[in-house]
Design a protein around this nucleic acid. Sequence first.
DNA 1: GAGCCGTGGGC
DNA 2: TGCCCAAGGCT
Length: 352
Amino acid sequence: MSITKKLITWYSKNKRDLPWRETTDPFKIWLSEIIMQQTRIEQGTSYYLKFVDEFASVEELAIAPEDKIMRMWQGLGYYSRARNLHAAARQIKNQYEGQFPVSYKELIKLKGVGDYTAAAIASITNNEAVPAVDGNVKRVIARLFDIRDDISTAKTYNTIKNISAQLITKDDPGTFNQALMDFGALRCTPKNPKCTDCPLSEHCLAMQSGMVQELPVKYNRTKKKYRYFNFLILELKNGKQDFFYILQRTEKDIWNRLFQFPLIESEQLLKENALIKELSKRIPDAEAGELTISRQYKHLLSHQIIFAQFIRIRLKNEPQKIPSQWIKIPKHKIVDYGIPRLIDQYLKTEYF
DNA sequence: GAGCCGTGGGC
DNA sequence: TGCCCAAGGCT
């Protein structure tokens, strides 16, 4: 029996029961694909359910405010996906009259939809025989064909895509693509792959050459950058309500479009004296009262390691000379804003 | 092409 | 002050 047939058979018995496998609605398939990019099923599923519950159609998503989408995406990471999701929804509303495109050719034009995602959606919703090559597929095919080249290069990507194009079935390409991915996720795993009784072992060249554990090969390790964040929580009591200041991140940097407390980035975490000096430099007319420094947090990102501390400062007066982008909000309203995980965890464990 | 962009979990 | 990986895409 061919690799393809064995794979399809394996899939019919072992496929994962996932919410978006109950539909071929391109809107829902697209949502699931964007949410699951570089994300584990266990992490992304609740977000998928939340989004399909909140937005019945791509048009509803298109007219939603961006801040609402960012709030809903909070905690999922890679926030450019959320911004691109919104942009793509507006593209579809404006250029396709709300009719979701299903061909690879049109899908690839959407913001946030690259080669993998366009192929996945087109194969599932439009029966196009286009190979969807994700991390799972790269690994499975690298092992099956004993490909020892660096899988992070475009050349190897094309090699693998061509092989998958040879294997894909024209009658049910969506199932084939998903079968290959599930096989990688459940069976041909990065570590400790289940090679015993593997239905594809007789086809597996890496198995024959003893290279399974060494594949796939991936170079290109970039060093992580260290950063030090001092967040200022400037607290105001105004009558009965408690307020503090937040602002939106808008630079080409991490956490773009999320909200945060006023930030002082430094070479090392600052001590109390330096903090007071920085505060008076930034807000000359502020009268600081009690000052409390949190524990030190270490927050890991894909390319950065962030050390952070949060400094609560009671203000005795309401300063006038504050930066224009700062927003004064009642503390409890912070739940309406999308914030980074780091800040969310601080607020939940130490602040509220 | 290479660097950048989050978060959580396994080991 | 660990390292790798996960349904990638953008610049």
